[in-house]
Amino acid sequence: MIERRDFLKGCLACGVTAATVSVASGKAMAAGSFEGYPDAMGVLVDLTRCVGCRSCEAACNAEQKLPEPDLAFDDTSVFSDKRRTTEKAYTVVNKYQVADKETLFRKIQCNHCTEPACLSSCFVNAYTKTKEGAVIYNAKVCVGCRNCMIACPFNIPAYSYSSPLNPLVKKCIFCYDTRLKDGKPPACVDICPQQVMTFGRRADLIKLGHDRIQANPAKYVDKLYGEKAVGGTSWMYLSSVDFDKVGFDGHIQNEPIISNVKDFLGFVPMVLSIWPALFTGVHLLATKNKDGHHDHEEGDHQ
């Protein structure tokens, strides 16, 4: 009887401890708690400046030694479609008719999230968020599962479907290897004639972006896209029209993607380690009680 009671107490204590620990750790790892590396770099993209020259696409192709494009980079017929990033193009520019006579161009590439969903979803840990702000990946460990392609809220990672033997995920790496790690801006930023993209510390760019809006409130929508989206991105955007109109997901969540699953995933270890012991104990206790108490109860009645 005493042993049984101790066992029950033990089980309860374990359960309570586990619950407390999981709650505490849940709080410590609360979603959006990672504010980014202090000196992480970023890029502020001002859509109002882009003239659609596609120099950035050309520079990216050369810098990343990508395969030959289907069409020359000065061919504007590509604007008839809304393109996405591919294994052959880590960045593409799309054209949007936003008013009768007004068009805007929008460059797409990896936004280099502060808390990247691709990184969270990768079970071989191929992805790294570097202190310089880039989200890079190790192609050697990539197994080509394409979880990151599903996880990315911006549909950025592409896949080398053309390579049947060793297909890999392909995406913009902020020119990390060749430029960013030496403090240089990526190739697209460097070549842009209009300085659509301003390179700098992410923290400084947030201020710069808001200053630009404040200096010209009639020109810009009062929003810096990427300042808060999915926990913040290294690449941020200014626009003269609603972001929905130029292909952005205007209703994207402000919490990092990982916070959608963090609470649930935090529960899994507790369930796996505590519940078997707990319920075995409860089961043993319940069945023993049944057998033992029957005699007593019968005796009492008599």
Binding site: A58, N61, E68, P69, A72, F73
Partner: peptide, 14 residues
């Protein structure tokens, strides 16, 4: 050369 135009134009257009 960088714009893949002129004599550097893609050989086999898609």
């Amino acid at each position: 050369a960088i714009f893949k135009s002129g004599k550097y134009a893609p050989k086999a257009p898609a």
